Computed example of a mutant assay.
Amino acid sequence: MNGCDAGRMKQVAHFRESPLPLFPFGDGDEAVQAAPVNAAGRLPSYIGDHRQRLRERFRDTDGAGLAEYEVLEMVLFRAISRQDVKPLARRLLDSFGDLARVVSAPKARLMQVHGVGEAVVTELKLMEVVAQRMARSRVMQRPVLSSWQALLDYCHTVMSHAETEHFRILFLDRKNVLIADEEQAKGTVDHVPVYPREVVKRALELGATALILIHYVARHI
């Protein structure tokens, strides 16, 4: 073998991607280690291709064709760019039960799941804020009686996965239009303090003529 042939073989090997692992990642530390990258800094094709296929399926079906863990995978793509996120998506669902509970879980509990860091928490909490604001936009500045189901859906979105008691107040004007929605107090797992004087004071400040009081207890409104 001459020097030119050896140089070409060395160059080919230099750009070759790492092979697909013989066994899939398990639930241990291997599942959160960064995937090997090639010399050009790109993801191995088996991960890049998987992400591309998932995005194409999402576009083709408007998301309806994806399982919950696949939707969660797509959320995790932005937070974790250089590893297979499917094991982490499955661990999160195993830990909390479903996508809604994953997104609404407290930061401290999310951080207890192996592989979750600040970037993952940020993406999940961003999803939670988007969901809450979409639900809120359907009820604010609208008559309550004509959008009662939307109001119930909104309360369910913002409160139903909390792990402690909450007391929330919806302020209405004389036409029963929702003009403000405020969380008045957070409590413990079995108690929340409510101060009637503060409730009345806030209603007067807002010019509200009617109130809807919501006491959330043990995952039930």
Rank of each mutant, 00 (worst) to 15 (best):
H14L: 13
G115K: 05
W148S: 00
V129P: 01
L213F: 12
H161Y: 09
V192R: 02
D94A: 15
A100T: 04
Q52M: 05
M74A: 11
E56N: 09
D62V: 05
A31E: 11
Q83S: 15
A34L: 12
A108R: 05
S95M: 05
T157G: 12
V75L: 13
E163R: 12
T209R: 15
L204T: 13
H166G: 07
R82H: 11
R219I: 05
D190V: 03
V189G: 03
R142M: 13
M140K: 04
A67C: 09
V194E: 08
G207T: 08
M159K: 05
Y46G: 04
S147A: 15
R219L: 11
F23A: 13
L151R: 00
V116K: 00
Q112M: 00
L172Y: 08
T61D: 03
V130M: 11
P24A: 13
P87A: 06
L54D: 02
K186S: 06
H220M: 06
M159E: 08
A6D: 12
K175N: 14
M111N: 03
P87E: 00
L206Q: 06
H114G: 06
F23W: 10
R197N: 11
D60W: 01
V177T: 15
E198T: 02
K201A: 13
E118G: 03
A210N: 15
A89L: 05
F25N: 04
Q184S: 07
L172P: 08
T164Y: 10
Q141C: 02
N176A: 10
D173M: 09
A31D: 11
V130R: 14
R55F: 00
L145V: 12
Q52W: 07
H220Q: 11
D181Q: 02
Q33K: 15
K175P: 01
E73F: 02
A34R: 12
R219H: 15
A31C: 12
R42V: 05
A40F: 03
L43S: 07
K175R: 15
L151E: 12
L172S: 02
D94E: 15
P143A: 08
H166W: 02
Q52R: 13
H166T: 03
E165K: 09
P21V: 14
T61V: 02
H220W: 00
N38C: 11
A6H: 09
Y216F: 10
T188N: 02
G97S: 07
A34T: 03
W148Y: 09
V103F: 11
L204V: 13
L126F: 01
P24I: 11
R8V: 11
P21G: 14
M9V: 10
H114A: 04
Q141M: 09
